[in-house]
Design a protein around this nucleic acid. Sequence first.
DNA 1: GCATTACCTACCGTTCAAGTATGTTGGTCG
DNA 2: CGACCAACATACTTGAACGGTAGGTAATGC
Lengths: 133, 133
Amino acid sequence: MMISTRGRYALRVLIDLAEHENGGYIPLRDVAKRQQISLKYIERIMPVLVKNGYVAALHGKGGGYRLEKKPESCSVGDILRLTEGTLAPVSCLECSQPACPMQENCRTLPMWKKLDEMIKNFFDSITLGDLMK
Amino acid sequence: MMISTRGRYALRVLIDLAEHENGGYIPLRDVAKRQQISLKYIERIMPVLVKNGYVAALHGKGGGYRLEKKPESCSVGDILRLTEGTLAPVSCLECSQPACPMQENCRTLPMWKKLDEMIKNFFDSITLGDLMK
DNA sequence: GCATTACCTACCGTTCAAGTATGTTGGTCG
DNA sequence: CGACCAACATACTTGAACGGTAGGTAATGC
């Protein structure tokens, strides 16, 4: 429950695609080599980015991936939520989790909520475009 | 690598000790019951708080723990660093970890550093006293 | 000496991260 | 048509961590 390689790699792949944009499709093998990331590992992360319209995929020779949005309109927060599942810094805040019995009179919960808010705002205010400068 | 029960429980125990302060020692059993935390589990977290001067411990009947500092001078950041080991939101920033080969030209690293700084500042500016209000 | 309480060590079950291995599907090119 | 390439799918592995539990030892008060 914080940022693992899934989210970090996804960001780096998307940035790499943006930076090597050439109108066509870029094979993942090239990206993996440049980014020094296990090809097989990110292969499994890509489909979720396809399904959500961040990239288009093409099979076969000359195929690969192509960024489908402008980097400036890809928020880092959205990408991380997609790949990580949650950005919550403590399990108390995950909706999936059963509610804590102490919730009502927990002296620390407000602090976690504030932190959570801060982190969300942080990531939502950054785009892929910002990271390329 | 983010805030687990170790750090969260530690904070709650310290606050509980502060709120039930009576000049004497408070047995952990009472705290555990009030906070609905496994006694055996926090028993193992307490020694580090003793060694670092946050609480004093006394064995035997009438023993227990007593807060040794004013809540206002206990920073949440320090307590979490003590119990969690690190507050870094990504493994790239942990000193224990081997340096990432891409460090020099990683487009995302500056973002992680900024987040890390933000989180540190957040926790370092809160004290136990703040949480008791 | 007996109850109480902190402290220490070892173990356990589950989950997750991170990656590997192996194949299958879909598409291009010659 | 067939070779080849690249995305996609599934299964497995390895290691570490979390969140405990169990049992025992050491100190302290009555």
